[in-house]
Design a protein around this nucleic acid. Structure first.
Length: 225
DNA sequence: GCATTAACAGCCG
DNA sequence: CGGCTGTTAATGC
């Protein structure tokens, strides 16, 4: 269980909730650490929690039988995910893996449904979130066949700074290594490295040690189109 | 061939 | 000193 104070710190959507709603939310939540490379859950698992990333980076994706991985989304601090599996009460359709040491908040199913049934503010947040996910996944359809390497890197970075998914966060810097970015984009570290330098030369971002700073988000989001 | 993996030296925190 | 980066060499599809 976490405090109301803590909930407001780690969950921007909680700021719209009234005291009763906050109470239900915080009582149904715990925080947990995951080490780099550790799985929060595997595809097929029963994992009845809604997940919020407090810090770190979590990859949502699957691993095919041949060992090839597909990323559906990269989630950094401020991300909330997994509501689909909680709502539908079905096994996870994807893996959740920590790309670096990460701290996550877990809300149990009962608390999630209480909010779902009782809080207009919570539902408003969920609708916004679903809506944004849909447009992100539409973009994902063209990803494999249409986008060259720099475009993939640009798009993945833009997703990590999506202003709808991270409305409270005006930051332009993110701690993420080139290797982690490569894992997200489905690219080798070398290609990621080259692509980052290309994007930097065009003034769209700044490459730093263990991180990037976004200089032109719209250009990154639309890169390669 | 091309791309991914491995390997390694430099470097920054 | 450990982890990240940039490059090159080896390996695999």
């Amino acid at each position: 269980m976490i405090s109301a104070e803590r909930l407001r710190q780690i969950a921007f959507w909680a700021r719209e909730l009234n005291d009763t709603e906050i109470e239900h939310a915080r009582r149904g939540m715990v925080e947990k650490e995951f080490a780099k490379g550790e799985y929060l859950c595997h595809r097929g698992d029963r994992f009845d929690h809604w997940v919020g990333v407090v810090h770190g980076v979590v990859k949502v994706g699957t691993m095919s039988s041949t060992g090839k991985s597909t990323t559906f989304a990269g989630c950094r601090n401020g991300s909330w995910l997994g509501e689909g599996s909680v709502v539908k009460d079905e096994p996870r359709r994807y893996d959740l893996v920590a790309l670096r040491d990460s701290r996550v908040a877990l809300m149990n199913r009962a608390a999630f449904f209480w909010l779902f049934d009782n809080s207009a503010a919570f539902n408003r947040f969920l609708i916004h979130q679903f809506n944004e996910r849909i447009s992100q996944f539409i973009g994902l359809v063209e990803y494999d066949r249409m986008l060259d390497i720099p475009s993939r890197v640009a798009r993945n970075i833009a997703w990590l700074f999506n202003p709808v998914l991270y409305p409270q966060d005006k930051a332009t810097h993110l701690d993420i290594t080139q290797e982690e970015l490569g894992l997200l984009a489905g690219l080798s570290r070398q290609h990621t490295n080259e692509a980052l330098k290309l994007l930097e030369s065009k003034g769209l971002l700044r490459v730093e040690r263990g991180g990037v700073t976004v200089l032109d988000l719209p250009a990154l989001a639309g890169y390669g189109e």
